[in-house]
Design a binder for these strands. Structure first.
Lengths: 345, 345
DNA sequence: TCACTTTTGAGGTACGCACATCATTGCTGC
DNA sequence: GCAGCAATGATGTGCGTACCTCAAAAGTGA
């Protein structure tokens, strides 16, 4: 005897197949008493609906949309690649994934895109975006229309997403601090913190976590203010020179966001490349090269492959109104050094 | 128009459904020319077999066996828990998993168990075991009978397993060395290496990787010979005292295998707990507690949840004669510090 | 008790595929 | 040109479920 089927449930509950179907799919026209009988039979036999067969019978192909900013970021590009690979595989499981890039600076365009999607009859949306009021309203409307929303990488707590796929940014910052503190050793106990901008929630949280551990475990190390570069290499050069002049030399650099290539350039000009402990975030071709070259000491990352697969699994589960396997979907915060770099494919 | 189906392939290739079926399922009695025509139609239409429907039609439930040693090891226990959880979920995907523990000291018993399984008509076997000649022969026989074998945690290169699920132990050792070297800082540049035994392949490889990086990047640090404890706390106490007396104090301890609790005890007796950099392997309740308490500085681990799910996915793929998604099955080597400990459930 | 509504039963079709059977076609050598 | 065999076609059944229709039974109120 294999797994129980609807037929077994019908026999066990003493009702017809049609009634079992009505109960399982929450169709109207069944007495409470009958519902209870079927539910009990389900529990007794340990019946689990065969979702594959169910979706086959429904004939529906789950259609989901994924929205990424059109930033020229290596990380976003890496994530997109991972999503495309995962989407190709998901095709064999009756799922169609539409990937869109939205203008990062125009939240109204994003909101309009979301409205279009809602009208187009989609069964789920996942997105990576900073939480603005416009977006929040758009997402709430989407969810009110019954479309589940999944936040990727950066959480959207005020939009009440159905799920968040990403790591704890505060823990990421704490981990960076722990490594920085221990790697610094006898080097100048001063750390420079650099960010493109502090608008994104994850940057802010990383910084908070970094400070918390620095203050608690390494009180002897001085941590500077966040230097914002707004993505411009020239600004980076200026703020770094200014900071070094006014506060003196540093033993470590913590890069909150992207901009690794520009940093390498400036460090090289200053004769600091490989002489200061450098810690950053996210595994991209640039950071991989930097680790391999030896001038970056550690990268705190989240596995984009996992993010992609987890996102699709969660969207599928939501579409099927199935529960989520928390332990599988919990992303690990990864520490990457030169020695545990993943083998290049 | 949704996804193409076998019917579309038949029309496109100008053949019948039966022939498409013969080609897709590699059944005999089709001319090479016809096979080519069908294959081309598949490529042209971008046909992807609906595995859900296929498995439904096959009506077969994949039965696999998983064999773990009956060692009283926290890691093995953790792995078993993960496998049981994954197995419970796999049930809804038409897969039955039988978990066995074999006597760790009796390879003949393991071989006999494997022979039984082969006779019982099983579609796959996964196991964690040291590679002995007896086992190697048993595994070869099993594979000759068409049963795919998956090695878990510790590879079995001479038994030519269909797949290995686990991390690169050499890289694990290299990573441990990197952290040890950098964490030591101004501490006594001498490291003690402790193992239960050096019989297992992964212990040996870790040690090799550790030495390689120590030699290359930290030539000033002296690394002692491997002290074997054979799992006995009393032996651990003796060899540690002996080593400290003969070679002098150490600044770090590298624990190759298990035995974290006994180590804590002895370190405490010696007044060294928390005063030497301690690095070990695998995330278990003991090591988690040690990291939290602060006397262990880092743990190099592999995610048992991933091992479990990956093992089942690979076995399923082998049973379905489907290709394996390498990028999903590649396990990451994890570095765990206190700050990035996974939140307790 | 009768007309009425609500609840339940019986049965069919479909989803995309695997697998089986039997009939038919094409090709080979003689 | 015919036996003999390989290649192909035609057709049916079933996997577990969804969804539909129509008929029958049970329950309701007056």
């Amino acid at each position: 005897m294999g797994r129980p089927t609807v037929t077994d449930i019908a026999r066990e509950a003493g009702v017809s197949l049609a009634t079992v179907d009505r109960v399982l799919n929450a169709r109207p026209g069944v007495r409470a008493k009958t519902i209870a009988a079927v539910t009990e039979a389900v529990a007794r036999l340990g019946y689990v609906r065969d979702m594959a067969a169910a979706n086959l019978a429904r004939g529906r192909t789950t259609r989901v949309a994924i929205l990424l900013p059109d930033t020229e970021s290596q990380f976003v590009q890496t994530l997109q690649d991972a999503l495309e690979e995962a989407a190709a595989l998901a095709t064999s499981a009756r799922m169609r994934v539409d990937l869109h890039r939205y203008p990062a600076s125009d939240m109204h365009a994003l909101a309009a895109l979301l409205a279009d999607l809602a009208a187009g009859g989609i069964s789920g949306v996942a997105l990576m975006a900073p939480e603005t009021p416009v977006l929040r309203d758009a997402l709430r409307a989407l969810q009110a229309a019954g479309v589940p929303v999944v936040a990727m990488v950066s959480d959207l707590p005020n939009s009440a997403p159905a799920h968040f796929v990403g790591i704890d940014s505060h823990a990421a910052g704490r981990t960076a601090a722990m490594l920085m503190g221990r790697f610094l050793g006898a080097k100048t106990p001063r750390v420079m913190v650099i960010a493109q901008s502090m608008l994104l929630r994850d940057s802010i949280e990383r910084r908070r976590g970094f400070d918390a551990v620095m203050l608690r475990d390494f009180p002897g190390i001085e941590v500077g203010q966040t230097l914002e570069t707004h993505g411009a290499p020239e600004t980076l050069r200026q703020v770094m020179r200014l900071s070094l002049e006014s506060s003196g030399p540093v033993g470590g650099i913590y890069l909150l966001g992207s901009g690794h290539r520009a940093l390498a350039q400036v460090l090289s000009e200053l004769g600091l490349l490989g002489r200061v402990v450098t810690i950053g975030h996210e595994l991209t071709p640039h950071t991989t090269a930097a680790l391999r070259a030896g001038w970056m000491d550690a990268v705190i990352a989240q596995n984009v492959g996992h993010i992609a697969r987890s996102t699709l699994r969660v969207l599928q589960a939501k579409a099927d109104q199935q529960p989520i396997n928390e332990s599988q979907e919990r992303l690990r915060l990864e520490i990457i050094l030169r020695e545990n770099l993943p083998p290049s494919p």
